Simulated scan of single mutants.
Amino acid sequence: MSHVCHTPHTGAPVRVAVVPDSFKGSARAVDVAGAMARGVREAFVGSDTPVEVDTLPFADGGEGTLDALLGAWGTTARTADTTDALGRPVRARYGLSPDGRTGVIEAAEANGLPLLADIPLRPLEATTRGIGPLAAALLDAGVEEILLCIGGSATTDGGVGLLTALGAQPLDADGAQLPDGGGALTALERLDLSGLDPRARTVRWRIACDVTNPLVGPAGAAMVFGPQKGATAADVRTLDTGLNRLADVLARDTGTDVRERAGMGAAGGLPAPLVALLDAETVPGSRLVAEVLGAERLLARADLVLTGEGSFDGQSLSGKVVDSVRRLTPGNTPVVVIAGSVSVPPERLRDAGITAAFSIARGPASLERMREEVLPAITETALHCCRLFAHRYA
């Protein structure tokens, strides 16, 4: 698929859509979008044709999604007292749409690996319980839908901690409540839902999920992701056994075998009980964000689209933000990528329908220096890119 520039429309403004991801570790999507927009406007200085810039900070459902949605909505983060994956007190953020109908949780605000960077990991005890107070805060706010973004977790407890925080009780064969963590699931006999917050059943749950790993087995949550969360070989076996036991209980009590569903292994099995018990939907993260933000409508009216991310590589064209923007943009509209680094060969750009890709790197520099200069460099790169486009209207 090739891109051909729109024919200039005399007297009408040029519409440029700026739809970037964050530059991970360097700049939030909302700041990247602002930097690109400044470059676009500077590029059209002196042109007889006005430019209109639509900015839409974007994300793929993982890290940065909360900030992207808040930036697009024009709302500010709310906070709640909760706990991290090992039960230590933390203050975590969540978001609410302007109309109050949709809430968003970035689960890693409560169960993320970065929160445990100062202590040894304990993969058998790590719990999703801390996500519960964030969900409860949204239920208290009266939302109709909860968007749950689940990347970056430190947990492999099959989401049982979250259910526990909402009032469920995981019980062993003697009727005693199990302790937190995936290691305890090997003794799970049943999930007592009599105390579950009834609002958890009536709200719509949508889970941003970009992996297809099953819950258990060689490609499952414990085997693939457990070692990243500190699990030894023995821990992995224990966690996988526990998740199998959870799947057995869910299948027995609901008739839904979550082992047969792709993506249930994401975030240590977090989606599994939400799908089986609460009718949660799993949705590719970038598609969910695009739908919530109305990205397709914005891209449909653009004459030029700028997108980007920190590292534009082969994975970028497989469901990430750049790929989603490209797919949502009409085929005759040029799409330009601005990134910290670019390692996609020209022929693949052409095949993917990307018009061009530019790195913001100005030359050899330390990572720290590049981080300090990232926003001015993005603005400068966007300016040079758009000057090639703006000269047609001068």
Score class of each variant (00 low, 15 high):
residue 247 A to N: 11
residue 266 A to F: 13
residue 258 V to W: 10
residue 261 R to S: 10
residue 268 G to W: 11
residue 259 R to T: 14
residue 246 L to Q: 07
residue 271 P to Y: 10
residue 242 G to P: 06
residue 266 A to R: 08
residue 252 R to F: 02
residue 268 G to A: 04
residue 254 T to A: 05
residue 273 P to M: 03
residue 276 A to E: 02
residue 273 P to Q: 07
residue 242 G to M: 06
residue 264 M to D: 05
residue 275 V to T: 13
residue 248 D to P: 07
residue 245 R to S: 08
residue 248 D to T: 08
residue 264 M to C: 14
residue 245 R to P: 02
residue 276 A to W: 04
residue 273 P to H: 05
residue 253 D to C: 05
residue 253 D to L: 05
residue 260 E to I: 00
residue 248 D to L: 05
residue 242 G to Y: 11
residue 265 G to L: 01
residue 260 E to G: 15
residue 247 A to R: 08
residue 250 L to Q: 09
residue 276 A to Q: 02
residue 261 R to Y: 14
residue 247 A to G: 10
residue 273 P to I: 03
residue 261 R to F: 15
residue 272 A to H: 08
residue 244 N to F: 09
residue 242 G to R: 05
residue 246 L to F: 12
residue 255 G to Y: 08
residue 249 V to C: 10
residue 252 R to N: 12
residue 274 L to N: 12
residue 243 L to N: 07
residue 264 M to V: 02
residue 266 A to G: 08
residue 265 G to V: 02
residue 262 A to T: 12
residue 243 L to Y: 11
residue 244 N to I: 00
residue 248 D to F: 12
residue 265 G to K: 03
residue 263 G to M: 01
residue 274 L to Q: 12
residue 251 A to G: 06
residue 243 L to I: 06
residue 259 R to P: 02
residue 251 A to Y: 08
residue 276 A to C: 01
residue 262 A to I: 00
residue 276 A to S: 06
residue 274 L to A: 10
residue 247 A to V: 07
residue 250 L to H: 12
residue 242 G to L: 08
residue 249 V to L: 09
residue 276 A to G: 01
residue 267 A to E: 09
residue 275 V to H: 11
residue 273 P to V: 03
residue 249 V to Y: 14
residue 242 G to T: 08
residue 251 A to W: 11
residue 252 R to T: 15
residue 269 G to V: 06
residue 249 V to H: 12
residue 269 G to F: 13
